[in-house]
C-alpha cells in the first residue's frame, strides 16, 4: 500500500501512479477543481512537463495550487 498526503488529506492506494493520473483521480473525486496546477512533491516543485513520468511514493506529501495566469 502507498500512503500519501494530498493537500492536507491522507490517502492510500494499492499501487503507485503518475502525478498526472493522481491529479485526474483527485479531480474526478472533487478534491481539486481542475487538472492544471503548480504541484509540489515533498516541498519540491514538479513541472507540468514531468508529471506524466513522475510517480508517487509511499509517504509523499503533495500540495497543489492553481496555475497562475495573468489578465
Amino acid at each position: 500500500m502507498i500512503s500519501i498526503n494530498f493537500n492536507g488529506l491522507n490517502f492510500m492506494f494499492n499501487q503507485s501512479m503518475t502525478i498526472s493520473n493522481l491529479i485526474s483521480l483527485m479531480k474526478i473525486n472533487g478534491f481539486v477543481e481542475n487538472s492544471s496546477h503548480l504541484i509540489k512533491v515533498n516541498g519540491k516543485l514538479i513541472t507540468p512537463f514531468s508529471i506524466h513520468q513522475t510517480t508517487i511514493s509511499d509517504g509523499d506529501v503533495i500540495t497543489t495550487k492553481p496555475l497562475p495566469v495573468g489578465g
Binding site: 492544471s36 507540468p48 512537463f49 506524466h52 492553481p66 495566469v69
Partner: peptide
C-alpha cells in the same frame, strides 16, 4: 492554464 495539466 488548462492544457498545462495535459501536455501528454
Amino acid at each position: 492554464a488548462t492544457f498545462a495539466g495535459h501536455l501528454d
